[in-house]
Design a protein around this nucleic acid. Structure first.
Lengths: 153, 153
DNA sequence: TTGACAAAGAAGAATCATTCTCATCTAATA
DNA sequence: TATTAGATGAGAATGATTCTTCTTTGTCAA
């Protein structure tokens, strides 16, 4: 069994267990969606995932893929690679800097480059990727949301 | 004159100059769009920007705002706060890690946390923001795009 | 096992963000 | 000031995502 297959198997096991814990039905569609996603090297869009899944379940609908993506995200079975897809956000400050992002209200505030220890790779990257700059997002809760969050839970 | 106003003025001056250099007409709409954006603390969406600009130019159309945003981006007058807006990207790898992002073909590849010197703030943040984790994007060109880019220019 | 019920799926309409088209309009410059 | 390339406004078109409705399927108690 290859490294890759073993990894997919491990993730599927975790998936099944989590679904049981959360009372999520283990439908054929869900198993296929998750397995396909776990087996992909890159980070597909819902549409791309749908195309892959259709090879195994031709009758599946795009809506089902979207609905399950959200179910999985809500249950910590998936991660979004990017916060703030969905709408363009703009800035006129052009010198290098980073951002604080509130994971609850999605507000973005600047973080000066000088407030952060310099970001550095430990070693050269394989694969010939040429890094031009590092973008850092400090994800967390803004003051207002931290308060709201505490009183919720 | 406040710090803030002075900063906006400086950006407007740079804006005017850049437009002249690039042969971009200095229309009333462009000046207002840019000034409003430069004066905002946060990082608005096109829709939010449009709402602000409409207070000064009620007849402006949303299409004009979008078109100018792209003109400004193309000419280095604005930055997108987030790459990858536009479509959700997913991953099943749940342990902390970062990403390499090709700015040309938008491919995303994982970067292990252990490949990077740990990210650290130099000092406590003001404003009571509570950081939960750092997300780092190493932005650059993948091997394939680096080659393509060289032969283009 | 079976049957009832809640959860999940399929299909397609609806919505939201963004882009495009095209008929005016205007900034730049001669 | 007249010319004209480039810019705007209005609204249609597109692409991504969500919603609605009806049908089907897992799950669980009997």
């Amino acid at each position: 069994m290859s490294e890759q297959t073993a990894m997919v198997e491990r993730r599927m096991e975790a998936f099944r267990e989590r679904c049981r814990e959360r009372g999520l039905a283990l439908t054929h569609q869900r198993l296929v969606i998750y397995r396909v996603l776990a087996g992909m090297e890159h980070h597909p869009s819902p549409e791309a995932l749908y195309e892959m899944v259709k090879k195994e379940i031709p009758s599946i609908s795009l809506g089902t893929v979207y609905k399950n993506i959200h179910t999985f995200l809500d249950n910590g079975l998936l991660r979004e690679v990017t916060l703030h897809h969905g709408t363009l956000r703009l800035e006129t400050k052009l010198d290098p800097h980073h951002h604080l992002v509130c994971s609850r209200c999605k507000t973005i505030v600047d973080l000066e480059e000088s407030d952060l220890e310099p970001v550095r790779l430990k070693k050269r990257l394989p694969k010939g990727f040429r890094v031009e700059r590092f973008r850092v997002e400090a994800v967390g809760l803004c003051a207002a949301c931290a308060v709201a969050h505490k009183s919720e839970s």
